Computed example of a mutant assay.
Amino acid sequence: MRRIAPCLLILSWVLTLFPAAAHAQSTDTVRAVVYEFLRGQSAGTPGQVTIRVTPPAIPPHLPRCDQLEPWLPAGARAWGKVRVGVRCVGQANWALYVPAEVSIVGNYLVSAHALRPGDILGAADVTVRRGEITTMGRQLLTDPAQAVGKQMRFAVGQGQTLRATMMAAPIVVQSGRPVKIIVKGHGFQVANQGVALGNGRAGDAVRVRLSSGKVVSGIATDNGEVHVAP
């Protein structure tokens, strides 16, 4: 009996220094916070989203936190393999990173046939396919509306994945060609003719030389006119 009392005293001292498992941070809680965070970040993404969170390596005596705050490092997004930061806000002061993966099975566009530079895309020029898109890089096109009416910047072969960087809005004003100029003001509109001094797409600033030799600047519109401020 004399030996039991000192042992109980030592055990009490150890439990004071090292709280019970109930007071340690739960791995499941951290995983759940990361999962819900990524689910919110990927909300609205077209396609079927699957989120996998790797069990984090939490030190056994990391203090339990009642308010966890997840975040993504600068430049990261909920796409493919990611590392989500989780910090404790409040009584404890710690942070850790949790590996996760966001897989998205969705639509993407490929060329229906070989395309040449300058081609204006129509609905028959693209084909919709479906697959895991997070491994295909960025700038993917996922809807035909994103491609139809655009102009190819360079050639691509049949079946090639289409990206936004491969195309641009079509040129509506061509250098050296006649162009209609519209000057709009409060209660009036004046039309004139000139010669474009450069190519322009809708929304681009374009310089135009008038028959008098004067050069004016305006904004190209999608119908090929140049609108000049009075």
Rank of each mutant, 00 (worst) to 15 (best):
R138H: 13
A57I: 02
F188W: 13
V179M: 07
R31A: 08
V14N: 02
I171Y: 14
T134Y: 03
E225R: 10
A124G: 02
A100L: 10
V215F: 12
T16I: 12
L8V: 12
W94A: 07
V86Q: 03
L72I: 05
Q160W: 06
W79M: 11
A20D: 14
S211R: 02
I51C: 05
G122D: 11
C7T: 11
T27E: 15
T16C: 12
T16K: 06
V34A: 14
T221I: 11
G224L: 08
N223D: 15
L15G: 03
A145P: 11
A169F: 09
P55Y: 11
R52N: 13
S12N: 02
R3N: 08
A123K: 05
A32W: 05
A74N: 13
R116A: 15
L210Y: 00
Q189M: 11
Q139T: 05
V226P: 08
P63M: 02
W94F: 09
T54I: 12
G159Q: 03
A95P: 00
S103C: 03
G122Q: 12
F188V: 03
A147F: 03
E69H: 12
V172I: 12
V126W: 05
P59D: 13
E36S: 10
H186G: 05
K81F: 11
L140P: 02
L8E: 06
T135E: 15
C65R: 00
V30D: 01
L141E: 07
A100I: 07
R138C: 07
V208A: 07
T135S: 15
C88V: 00
P59G: 06
P59L: 09
V102H: 10
G149H: 06
C88F: 04
Q25P: 09
A168R: 13
R2Q: 08
V156T: 03
G47H: 07
N223Q: 15
G149L: 05
P178V: 05
V226N: 04
G176L: 13
A74C: 09
S211Q: 08
R129S: 02
A24R: 10
A196I: 01
E101L: 11
A20M: 13
R87I: 06
G218A: 10
A168Q: 15
Q91E: 13
V226E: 09
L162T: 07
Q193H: 04
P46L: 12
V126M: 08
V34G: 09
P70M: 10
V128N: 04
Q151F: 03
T165I: 14
A95H: 04
P63W: 08
Q139S: 15
T161L: 09
G187T: 04
G75R: 06
I51Y: 02
C88R: 01
I171G: 04
G203L: 06
